[in-house]
Design a protein around this nucleic acid. Structure first.
Length: 637
RNA sequence: GCCCACAUAGCUCAGUGGCAGAGCACUUCCUUGGUAAGGAAGAGGUCCCCGGUUCAAUCCCGGGUGUGGGCUCCA
């Protein structure tokens, strides 16, 4: 009795009873059968070896489908574990999931793997592929599976199985002498795994818990074809070229020194960029009705006890003592702003009060977590606190979103992820207050038509927060901007204002930052533009390049004129050929190069070259100057 | 903090149990040039720090510090 199945193009195919996904693929064509990895039935992936049933709607999955690619990677993770078990029989397997762009597998071994071990493991993987071992699904009751793993000494696997409810049927996959717990599906044969590469090793806690054993993790990637693997390796290499730590050195922007771990020294060029960022934000503060304050770096621990930081954040704070009085270096501006708010008596007419502060912050970060400019121990934020009434939260939030997106448009950041982080376990305040705060944020977002995800339990201890994330060159997500509702600090500092009816009320505090940490933003920005800053940020906006020393006087005049007009020229009077000067300026990613020879000196013109557009021809100096000024003023990117 | 790796000239990196190396950058001289490297000479070192092994340690061993890849953490 033949059965019929429907393909995605709605064509119907007859197959003999008991036919499998493999048979279906074969009936369509040998090339498809070769590429086939699994089938998808009703949106669920299934093994090729499983029989198809009459009336099913079936799609054949290959490495071209995102789902097929994940499966390929998952099977490659198993392949990795298989190879490791062959080479290191004592290794115990942990878990081996698919991640963005690849996979990893965790192992418990006496001696952690090092990068040198990878080629041998990879060679063994290729051997298993060449052997063309069949991969088969096996199902058994949960208790039997647990017993099986225990008897084989695979205690980590047994632990996972035992966390599954009793009575369930467990599926596993066998390839030759290797057996692994897995939901599946998997490729039908190891020969399907043709293109993969092991990338790195790292330590990782079992089940991600610091209290558990440290396992040895191997990261790898896999694609349908070797070409795609090569392209991926190429992309990783390009990302490394854009790494802000490398560019920071090459462009002379900042440096790090052992004397101050994880604390950047901004060089003159980096400082120009940094200050331009601050100047831009200040300009917007003026437009959006903010006031700026300057508050102390070091304050009595009493303040931090009042704010709750001493209790909740002391591990990340620096302390100092003078005249037997204990002080803390500020890790945040908010308590200082509460002190400022309490300085005067406020009316509802004063609200909202938007208090900005570019104060330097110090936070002790555990060694091992710091990273270039993106995770440092001293930084400053484009920080501000909005003191407002409860019914002003939504409008303040809306205004902030406008401000935020205006800034991000200026920098040309396209992909911004927005997430709402909700109450963490360690927190201040009652559940009612948290309900109110989380609700206000979510509502404001929804009314703005903003799509956002939830990060349950990731909120600050004093309130929920909205986080804006962008990705760096290596696609790592970084939090930059944020907005946080805070009912706690006004309470702790007993802040109040007089309402219209003469009664006193507690203001709500909104903590918010657009760029977040300027240091971190700087790092992300460098990677975003590959070091080629837009003209308004570029430390050197125009390199003045005389061809011969006969024209040095005119070249000097050109540089002086630009400088007098508020621009940032750099005069290169080194005894070098113009080719060398151009190359240098290109490598420094200077937006404009002004080549000056006898002809230009004679005519009072400059020969303009743009770092990416190339030779723009000869222009009168004033024409170029006005164009550059306009470009800078508009903050074009 | 935990696992692994790395640390040699300003930068990128070779190298060796017995005098410390290259390229680029730097300095000087020659060269005066037209849109991505002109030539020559010179100078430049606590081989990260402390201890151990050794006749002898930049190299081997131990500890520390810093950096990197991850994990955990991250207001």
């Amino acid at each position: 009795m033949p059965i019929s199945v429907r393909l995605p193009d709605d064509s119907v195919r007859q197959l003999p009873d008991g036919a499998t996904g493999t048979d279906l693929a074969l009936s369509i064509g040998p090339r498809l059968a070769e590429a086939a990895l699994a089938v998808r039935v009703d949106g669920k992936a299934r093994d090729l070896k499983a029989p198809v049933r009459d009336g099913e709607k079936i799609a054949i999955l290959t490495g071209k489908d995102p789902e097929g690619l994940d499966l390929l990677r998952h099977s490659t993770a198993h392949l990795l574990a298989h190879a490791v078990k062959r080479l290191y029989p004592d290794a115990k397997v942990g878990i081996g999931p698919v991640i963005e762009d690849g996979f990893y597998y965790d192992f418990q071994v006496a001696k952690p793997f090092t990068a040198e071990d990878l080629p041998a493991i990879e060679a063994e993987m290729k051997k298993i592929v060449a052997e063309g071992i069949e991969v088969t699904r096996e199902e058994l009751p949960r208790d039997d599976a647990a017993k099986l793993f225990r008897s084989e000494g695979e205690l980590l696997k047994a632990e996972i199985v035992e966390s599954i409810p009793q009575g369930e049927i467990i599926s596993g996959y066998r390839q030759g002498d290797f057996y692994d717990l897995c939901r599946g599906p998997h490729v039908p044969n190891t020969s399907k795994l043709k293109a993969f590469k092991l990338l790195s090793v790292a330590g990782a806690y079992w089940r991600g818990d610091e209290k558990n054993a440290m396992l040895s993790r191997i990261y790898g990637t896999a694609f349908a074809t070797q070409k795609e693997v090569d392209e991926h390796i190429q992309r990783l290499e390009e990302a490394r070229q854009r790494d802000h730590r490398k560019l920071g050195r090459e462009l002379d922007l900042y440096s790090f020194h052992p004397e101050a771990p994880a604390s950047p020294f901004f060089h003159p060029k980096g400082t120009i960029v940094y200050n331009e960022l601050v100047a831009y934000i200040r300009e917007l503060y003026h437009k959006y009705g903010y006031s700026e304050v300057i508050t102390p770096q070091i304050m009595d621990v009493a303040l931090w006890k009042t704010s709750g930081h001493y209790e909740n954040y002391a591990d990340n704070m620096y302390f100092t003592t003078a005249e037997e009085r204990e002080y803390a270096v500020k890790p945040m501006n908010c308590p200082g702003h509460c002190v400022y708010f309490a300085t005067g008596k406020h009316s509802y007419r004063d609200l909202p009060m938007r208090i900005a502060d570019f104060g330097r912050l110090h936070r002790f970060e555990r060694s091992g977590v710091t990273h270039g400019l993106t995770r440092v121990r001293t930084f400053c934020q484009d920080d501000a606190h909005l003191f407002c009434a409860q019914d002003q939260i939504k409008s303040e939030m809306a205004a902030f979103l406008d401000l935020f997106y205006e800034v991000y448009a200026t920098f040309g950041f396209g992909e911004i992820r927005v997430a709402l982080s909700t109450r963490p376990e360690k927190r201040l305040g009652s559940d009612e207050i948290w309900d109110q705060a989380e609700g206000a944020l979510a509502e404001a977002m929804t009314e703005k038509g903003l799509a956002f995800t939830l990060n349950p339990g990731e909120g600050a201890f004093y309130g929920p927060k909205i986080e804006f994330q962008v990705l760096d060159a290596l696609k790592r997500p970084w939090q930059l901007g944020t907005l946080q509702v805070d009912y706690m600090l006004p309470e702790r500092f007993e802040l109040h204002y007089t309402q219209a009816d003469g009664t006193e009320a507690r203001p709500v505090m909104l903590h918010r930052a657009i760029l977040g940490s300027l240091e971190r933003f700087f790092g992300i920005l460098v990677e975003h533009c590959g070091g080629a800053f837009p003209a308004w940020l570029a430390p050197v906006q125009a390199a003045v390049l005389p061809i011969t020393d006969r024209v040095h006087p005119f070249a000097t005049q050109v540089a002086d004129r630009l400088r007098a007009a508020g621009l940032r020229p750099e005069l290169d009077i080194r005894n070098e050929k113009v080719n060398a000067k151009i190359r240098e300026a290109q490598l420094q990613k200077v937006p404009y190069m002004l080549v000056i020879g006898d002809r230009e000196a004679e005519a009072g013109t400059v020969s303009v070259r743009h770092r990416s557009k190339g030779d723009l021809g000869v222009q009168p100096l004033e024409t170029f100057l006005e164009a550059l000024q306009a470009e800078v003023r508009s903050r074009a990117h």
